[in-house]
Design a protein around this nucleic acid. Structure first.
Lengths: 358, 358
DNA sequence: AGACATTATTTATGAAGTAAACTATGTCAC
DNA sequence: GTGACATAGTTTACTTCATAAATAATGTCT
């Protein structure tokens, strides 16, 4: 049997602190009595924890306010509350987004306002060591004026299969040299602060939940389009994740068993229809059959064959290109429909765009 | 914002009691010091909670035991532990399984040993009121010799879509008269004890987790075959369930977009290939085409056309019937493969059998 | 009989939530 | 202005739990 969470006063305080911090973040500006009503905690408890958070400067008190009681004539009474809000400046967070073609590093405050942003192009075929060096350089710059005490931690978004427990990037389709790289430990050692890693495609869902306080008991299905298709499911406030991070591979879901062979060994996988390379291949095939003449002309004019070009032609009324786009929708629709049957989500979010990686 | 679990001493005690009870159940017979090591709780804490559980008679102490310490020569030392085990007789549970063609009621003890079992055939077209009356009759009989104090509660397994929060059976394919029946509240009122409802197809997964202590951090995909196909996912110890209980509908996942129209409005749903009625229809179609002559002969002999008959012929070497069975496997395989891509489960369990309902 | 190892309990302490009393602070009526 | 009123927030005394540390219990072995 694994060790589970045990109950002690530590558990109580983390649970309640989070609850209160969350409540203030969502309702701010707000005040102690309101927080108590919302969370179900008693006023005395809220006072204690709020004072604690005030002394840590994670919350701050705002002076002015008017009484909350009122009647139909607009008469107000009662002691005016002391308003609370999150002191965004109390902490700093560094976010590192590794993508096949670039690294993006942001320094944010507690409310995830971006204070500083850097972007640097990389070659997706580089050695991981070199790329990590670049990440460290950018992170170092972001942290130049940050007190280490103030730094909450570093979050890293990775484009591929990860092992969450070990903090390892197992593999990445678009970055072939990355194989079992223990990136969390490397960064943690170099930066000397706690580092967390997560799979890129899931982070949109995490943010969605964070920014929407009513999300706790809903189920959201989020599809992320990029070079391929990823799926994330936020279920009752929890992100569905496998131990090894292998989940979310909707791209290799079979949507047409008579379809083309896929790299994965399957036949008719979703990605044989909706990935950037599949779309381009499909267009090339049609050009070969003498269709999509518009595309051919554009290419002779020096333009690259890219998904967005096909879409542009489709919008302009090119029948053949429109058919390609329509097919993408059809297969995406089948996949989404299947997911809806399985999860009965309260909402489906599609984000990103189908891009090529050089 | 919804009200979340707040932290107070109640939380601590429930968390720790459950932890300890669970540990004892899994390791029994065991002893306090071992429980403390396993759970991470301190010995004094375990003593306190165990004594509490002993006084409630949920646990019992077994006298004999030998010292636990030992060296290579087999020498043993130390104070011999007081062994603990779950006192299965402390509580009684009533389990009611409603199926389209029968009601099954069991009285069990805390370890889910069946003490008493009753089964009664029902007509799936009956009014819900009549069926509930039968359920109450059987439950009443099961409870005849049970002290109400001893009764932990009643669990009901329902064959269809449920609303867990409301305890309502929303609809059931095989029991057309059941529409939005608030069965939990009805039973609760009549029996005067807490009633919980769950969807039948998911309960195999729940039991699987309960009976396997190492299950907490695994992901299991469980397919349940009956008149159709249901899927349950046990993920990190939690059953994936939607608020309205609409999930698990893998049967209406599209596996062949050129397939037949399905009742649900889709085309090529899994259930158009692997449900009992679909299989029979497929065989009838083949007979019409002059195939499956063996089946035809059997049917002229008065045998009903049922899935198991087709399977019997397939096993005997009937080529056409074998093809039907093979097709079932093919489509089931696609659906399962897709699920594996999505969830990367640690294991896939297929249970049940494809049955007809009269 | 006494050393030893291990299990189990007791006692004292501390952390956290909470009920209830109490203080604080505004508005309004007079 | 003064006091009633309503609501916000704090203080105090108390309870519940976990826990560290001391202690007791119980067997084997020398």
């Amino acid at each position: 049997m694994d060790k589970a969470q045990i109950g002690n006063s530590d558990l109580i305080s983390t649970v309640n602190s989070r609850l209160i911090l969350q409540a203030v973040r969502v309702m701010q500006p707000t005040y102690r009595a309101s927080v108590a009503r919302q969370t179900g905690l008693k006023p005395a408890t809220v006072t204690g924890i709020v004072n604690d958070l005030l002394s840590q400067q994670i919350l701050s008190e705002v002076p002015a306010a008017t009484p909350t009681g009122s009647d139909e004539s607009g008469t107000r009474w009662g002691r005016p509350p002391l308003m609370l809000q999150v002191n965004a400046d109390a902490k700093r967070i560094v976010a590192i987004d590794l993508e096949p073609d670039r690294i993006r590093v942001a320094l944010t405050d507690l409310l995830v306002n971006v204070l500083n942003y850097q972007e640097q192009a990389i070659d997706r075929f580089s050695e991981p060591e070199a790329i990590i060096k670049t990440m460290l350089k950018l992170a170092g710059r972001a942290l130049e004026d940050v007190d280490r005490q103030q730094l909450q931690g570093v979050g890293v978004s990775l484009p591929g299969l990860i092992d969450r427990e070990a903090g390892v990037l197992i593999s990445s389709t678009n970055m072939p040299k990355w194989r079992d790289v223990p990136i969390r430990d490397i960064l943690q050692k170099e930066l000397g602060v706690p580092v967390q890693v997560e799979r890129s495609i899931h982070l949109a869902a995490v943010y969605e939940k964070w920014s929407d306080p009513n999300h706790a008991h809903r189920t959201t299905l989020m599809l992320t389009l990029r070079t391929g298709v990823g799926i994330s499911i936020m279920h009752h406030g929890h992100l569905l994740t496998g131990r090894r991070g292998f989940e979310g591979e909707i791209g290799h879901t079979v949507v047409d068993l008579n379809g083309k062979a896929c790299e994965c060994g399957g036949k008719g996988c979703l990605e044989t229809f909706v990935s950037a390379s599949a779309i381009v291949a499909r267009a090339a095939e049609m050009i070969h059959q003498g269709k999509c003449q518009g595309l051919l002309t554009a290419m002779r004019g020096g333009t690259d064959l890219r998904p967005e070009l096909i879409y542009k032609f489709a919008k302009r009324g090119d029948r053949d290109c429109a058919r390609i786009v329509q097919e993408i929708g059809k297969y995406l629709g089948i996949a989404i429909g299947n997911m809806i049957n399985l999860f009965a989500p309260d909402e489906v979010v599609i984000c990103g765009s189908i891009d090529m990686v050089e």
